[in-house]
Nucleic acid binder design. Structure first.
Length: 554
RNA sequence: GGGCUCGUAGCUCAGUUGGCAGAGCGACGGACUUUUAAUCCGUUGGUCCCAGGUUCGAAUCCUGGCGAGCUCACCA
């Protein structure tokens, strides 16, 4: 009997990435090694929307490896594409504009840091993937093409150009397009060896074993013959390029944006081309929706101005939380990245899932069965969200991670001093080991970045640097005097000891704590409200508080 | 014109081979009072878009509508 891919899979493997893995294995039951692929054109800043492509593949790769499959994860940089438009967010617009019509790998880096425009954006993005635990095998298509590695792929496309044209025209017909490819259409694209522009008129000289094409450049008049086997600046157009590479790399899974996904779109025609021209098969496919950004401008588009990168997100989101946002959203749903107050909610949701993952197994009854299912799903979610793909084991201690809101308060009391905030959590006994410390530090960095760059003004405060004096009513003077007396007696008082004093502070006066607190906050942080006063005072230190509180007493 | 996705509580959404409609937030009530949109406990909440069909049984599968959004047909 043949072994099936499992009809009743491990209930733990219940994530959508696991379902995609099951489908992929079902399509290739004989494979010992499975190739999964992502690909992006670095035609501008590579943004968080592009990231969805990569993380989708990364998750499926993990799911496949969890089944014991040997996985090859390739990431194709389509850096041999043409530079069509100068993005508004680039420096040296005029310089870049001169290079329109050339390959992005032949356009200079306007920042002067890398060997090309493409390389600049590639380096930035690759650098931001590493902290997320994503390590694909990067392939630069410009190098493959120029080295002649796709010569046979191009030759076959030329030899069967009528088949390809028919497939593409059929798709146009089915979708009601007006135009058709002419009979002399060729599946070729490329750049002039002299002026580097894409204004070439091709002729096929030989589509057999010694395949050669000739071209004439309409920009500079240069004419040449290219032996495909030697490589050069000749490539296939996208709709043919994609299926050619599926066959070359034996790709078993590759997602695509929704713009590729509809009937008559590139995935549709590529499916036919890979089968009829290359004798291969199309990868299992997941179409994913776009990523929307909230709280930081609206649209993501590399050609318009404001883009949000993975690195931008990592300023605010821990790697695990950023992964979790993508892990928790099915690919076909639109996903939203927020920089406003929603950040807090996202962190709280993440923490809740995390607590559920570390909770004790539920037992007995059908209700418990459901709860157990959710607990396992939370564990799977946490594993896929983790950087090192470590599974949450039953009974494991959950490392400490401070609440976002609370940490934002502690950090502000410490003027953003992360070590100071860590010290606070060490004193409370919540940080107990290096892992706790690492997680706390990591979150503190994100919280502080958020406070400084995105938090609404209401959320921010600073402890006054210089004391001020306020005119006090007799009652206010009495109450403030009592607080000052307490702090003078014990400048190093801890919070539990201070709380009882707060309860008797206003005795025998017309005031209540509620009336008095605004004055205290005003003196300490120049605001009418603030974090819990006892936490504020004990965390900033009695001496520092005294210096700000006592001057008004005259 | 072709195609895809979605429509479930006030809001955001789960609901994975058809089997008692769920979570978070909100709202309401209570406790606490130690105030950034604090914490804890409790309550509330639904014509699963509509109409048919299959089935012992449908949010789930099929058909047909309605509504919303996206996408292709130029290039990548």
């Amino acid at each position: 009997m043949e072994t099936k891919v499992s009809n009743a899979p491990d209930p733990y493997l219940s994530h959508w990435a696991d379902a995609a893995a099951t489908k992929t294995l079902a399509a290739h039951p004989e494979a010992t090694r499975v190739t999964v692929a992502a690909g992006i054109t670095p035609s501008g800043v590579v943004h968080i929307g592009n990231f969805r492509e990569v993380i989708t593949v990364d998750l499926v790769a993990r799911a496949l490896r969890d089944r014991g499959v040997d996985v090859r994860f390739i990431y194709s940089w389509d850096d041999f594409d043409v530079f069509r438009k100068v993005p508004k967010n680039m420096p040296k617009q005029a310089l870049l504009a001169e290079h329109l019509g050339r390959s992005i790998v032949d356009v200079p880096d306007p920042y002067g840091e890398h060997d090309s425009y493409a390389s600049h954006h590639i380096a930035a993005f690759e650098g931001s993937l590493a902290p997320l635990g994503i390590h694909p095998e990067f392939i630069r298509q410009s190098r493959r093409y120029r080295a002649g590695e796709y010569a046979d792929g191009i030759r076959r496309a030329l030899a069967q150009r009528d088949t390809i044209r028919d497939i593409l025209n059929d798709a146009r017909e089915r979708t009601g397009a007006r135009s058709r490819l002419p009979d002399d259409w060729l599946p070729l694209y490329g750049f002039c060896d002299a002026c580097k522009r894409d204004t070439l008129e091709f002729t096929v000289l030989d589509d057999g074993d010694d395949a050669r094409v000739g071209y004439k450049c309409t920009s500079c008049g240069h004419a040449a013959e290219v032996e495909l086997a030697r490589g050069g600046n000749i490539k296939l157009p996208w709709r043919v390029d994609w299926p050619m590479r599926w066959a070359a790399e034996q790709v078993a899974f590759e997602p695509g944006g929704k713009d590729h996904s509809s009937a008559g779109g590139s995935y549709d025609t590529a499916q036919h081309i890979v089968r009829d021209v290359y004798g291969g098969w199309a990868p299992e496919y997941v179409g994913y929706d776009f990523v929307r950004v909230k709280g930081r401008g609206g649209k993501i588009s590399s050609s318009s101005g404001d883009v949000v990168t993975v690195a931008d997100c990592l300023q605010i989101y821990e790697p695990e939380v950023l992964r979790w946002i993508f892990v928790g959203t099915r690919p076909n749903r639109e996903l939203q990245i927020s920089f406003d107050l929603d950040v807090i909610k996202l962190y709280e949701d993440y923490d809740r899932t995390r607590r559920l993952a570390y909770s004790a197994p539920a037992e007995g009854g059908k209700k418990a069965e459901r709860a157990e299912k959710k607990r396992l799903a939370a564990q799977r979610t946490m594993q896929l969200s983790s950087v090192d793909h470590r599974r949450v084991e039953d009974g494991a201690r959950m490392p400490f991670q401070p609440q976002f809101r609370h940490l934002s308060m502690i950090l502000q009391i410490h003027d953003g001093d992360i070590d100071g905030a860590l010290h606070y959590y060490e004193q409370t006994g919540e940080i107990t080991d290096d892992e706790d410390r690492r997680l706390c530090r990591q979150r503190a960095r994100c919280v502080w970045n958020w406070i400084e760059r995105y938090a609404p003004p209401d959320f921010r405060y600073r402890i006054r640097e210089a004391p001020i004096t306020r005119a006090l009513t007799p009652d206010q003077a009495t109450v403030l005097g009592r607080l000052v007396a307490v702090l003078r007696a014990r400048p190093d008082i801890d919070e539990p000891s201070l709380i009882p004093h707060m309860k008797t502070l206003c005795d025998d006066t017309e005031l209540s704590n509620k009336d008095f607190f605004p004055l205290a906050y005003d003196l300490l942080i120049d605001r009418p409200k603030g974090p819990k006063l006892t936490t504020l005072v004990t965390t900033m230190g009695g001496a520092r508080a005294l210096a700000l509180l006592s001057p008004s007493l005259g």
